[in-house]
């Protein structure tokens, strides 16, 4: 039971330099990995590759020794840094959540999402509140792995603590694997069971 990147190579276009070269990485269920690196080391690219949003040029991404499924709800879900871009601006938030399959009241309660917000449009909520919806959507989809790309970088520390506490609790309960891309050393130490630095 593991998500792994096997010797992957990636670049944006044939004439561009390699962003990732011969990168290998493995994470088991129940493990929480913090990935850090200076800007330009391909942290976001790695997150996109692991979640199947991009295809590696060489090498493969394996989930339990099989490639990621091409159809259906993907068991590896990615959460972006900017929640306002990750929700359809014309959808009410109830619809945003329901896209993941079904509404889970316990997740809503854990995030303290007020029911009145479900009828609002994304532009009526702040970034911190929208990010709760994005994380809730990923959790409700029943994912086994969460890839969190700087999900709390744009948020204040109280909201950051709120969101991560829920994620960690849910991850424990469901034995999820978590890859958190972050530049915050203290945050990494707090949430991760293992840390890697891409620049090393």
């Amino acid at each position: 039971m593991a998500l792994e990147a096997k010797n992957i190579y990636f670049r944006y276009g044939r004439k561009q330099p390699w962003i990732l070269e011969d990168c290998t990485l493995k994470i088991d269920r129940g493990e929480r990995l913090a990935v850090s690196a200076p800007s330009g080391y391909g942290k976001t690219t790695l997150a996109l590759l692991l979640a199947g949003y991009l295809k590696p040029e060489k090498g493969e991404i394996l989930l339990d020794d099989k490639p990621l499924p091409a159809k259906g709800i993907c068991p590896v879900q990615l959460i972006y840094q900017h929640p306002e871009k990750a929700v359809n601006p014309r959808w009410r938030l109830k619809r945003v959540l329901e896209e993941s399959g079904k509404l889970r009241e316990d997740v809503l309660d854990a995030f303290g999402i007020e029911r009145a917000w479900l009828d609002r449009f994304p532009r009526e909520l702040s970034g911190g509140e929208l990010q709760r919806f994005c994380v809730a959507r990923a959790l409700m989809s029943g994912a086994d792995y969460l890839i969190c790309d700087e999900i709390s970088t744009m948020l204040d520390v109280i909201t950051q603590a709120q969101i991560w506490n829920v994620v960690l609790e849910e991850a424990d309960k469901r034995n999820m694997g978590i890859i958190a891309v972050t530049h915050n050393k203290h945050l990494a130490e707090r949430i991760a069971t293992r840390m890697i630095d891409l620049s090393e």
Binding site: V157, T159, Q160, A161, Q162, N165, N184, H186, E189, R190
Partner: peptide
């Protein structure tokens, strides 16, 4: 709420 000081929401 800082991660190094308790991480309390």
């Amino acid at each position: 709420a800082l991660p190094q000081n308790g991480f309390q929401p």
